[in-house]
């Protein structure tokens, strides 16, 4: 499977103040986002998710390493030809109506003029903003802006969607709408790369995930694999006659326990691995990265 996004040792250091003090925001990021996947980019606030996304989207220049989108260097604007992007907070032109707003981005995305009208109408319908097509964005609520932003990201029918915290600050209905949109795009074969610190959303939507803590990648792979690698213990339910018991085994001691219970004359009813949740895996990584400050950061939603 070819990569929609690939980075090698991608890094970003900011320099601030008169003496240009360095601040390492992103270090040695090696990402591999396969085409057609639904990829979650998780980490606590301030972990470097937005920095990574901005660097991929050409809004910031990397200070180390390299990155490619559909095989084209991220330094080349052409790498974003088939990309739809929704930034973290919806900041859009307040003087434009929803229709004008999508028209503008359709033109920038080289959508042929004959297709623009029908596509704008369909998208406004899809994000439930058709009634507000002639209302200036300055009068939109945050949820409406987020939906308009999603329509903007979809207007040029991109094959890769990059969404930075698309559900942040939305009410449950708004979150459900955004989630359904992402799932629809995924079903249509698009690659969806989105960051979030709301791990239940990631678990519900993504098939792959990368975890970033303090600017460094702490793991990536399939969600099931990442969670499976964090098996806490295994519950083995056994039966002898009318008696039923549950034996606990360490992840690497299942065979030993099974052999022992069989020798005792028990039969195996079920074997169930009890894993950490994605949230617990992330918390552990935060703990590992900042043993003292993890709790104080209050970083998880």
């Amino acid at each position: 499977m070819s990569a929609a996004i690939r980075t090698e040792k991608l890094g970003k250091t900011y320099f601030s103040g008169f003496f240009r003090f360095p601040y390492l925001a992103l270090a040695n990021l090696d990402l591999d986002v396969p085409e057609g996947s639904s990829f979650g980019f998780v980490g606590p606030n301030g972990a470097g998710k937005t920095t990574a996304i901005k660097t991929l989207m050409g809004l910031q220049r990397p200070t180390a390493g390299a990155g490619w989108i559909h095989g084209v260097s991220i330094l080349d604007p052409a790498s974003r030809a088939r990309v739809g992007f929704l930034p973290e907070r919806p900041y859009f032109y307040e003087h434009l109506t929803a229709r004008e707003f999508l028209e503008f981005y359709a033109r920038l995305g080289d959508v042929p003029s004959a297709e623009r009208g029908p596509r704008i109408a369909a998208l406004l319908e899809r994000v439930d903003l058709a009634r507000f097509r002639d209302v200036p964005l300055g009068k939109f609520s945050k949820g409406m802006l987020q939906r308009a932003g999603l329509a903007q990201a979809l207007i040029a029918d991109p094959s890769l969607l990059v969404l930075d915290e698309p559900m942040s600050g939305l009410d449950p209905i708004g979150r459900a709408l955004v989630r359904d949109l992402i799932l629809e795009e995924r079903r249509a074969g698009k690659t969806v790369f989105f960051s979030s610190h709301i791990l239940s959303d990631i678990e519900a939507i993504c098939d792959r995930v990368a975890m970033i803590v303090r600017g460094e990648l702490r793991g990536q792979g399939k969600v099931t694999e990442l969670v499976a690698s964090a098996v806490q213990h295994v519950d083995i339910v056994v039966r002898k006659g009318g008696a039923v018991e549950t034996r606990k085994a360490a992840p690497d001691g299942v065979d030993t326990v099974i052999d022992a219970v069989r020798r005792e004359g028990w039969s195996i009813v079920s074997v169930h691995a009890v894993s950490k949740s994605l949230e617990q895996v992330l918390l552990d990584e935060v703990e590992r990265a900042r043993p003292v400050d993890a709790k104080r950061m209050g970083v998880l939603a």
Partner: peptide, 10 residues
């Protein structure tokens, strides 16, 4: 921050 959606276009 309207530059985010503008400068991220191709």
């Amino acid at each position: 921050k309207t530059i985010y959606t503008l400068a991220s276009k191709p």
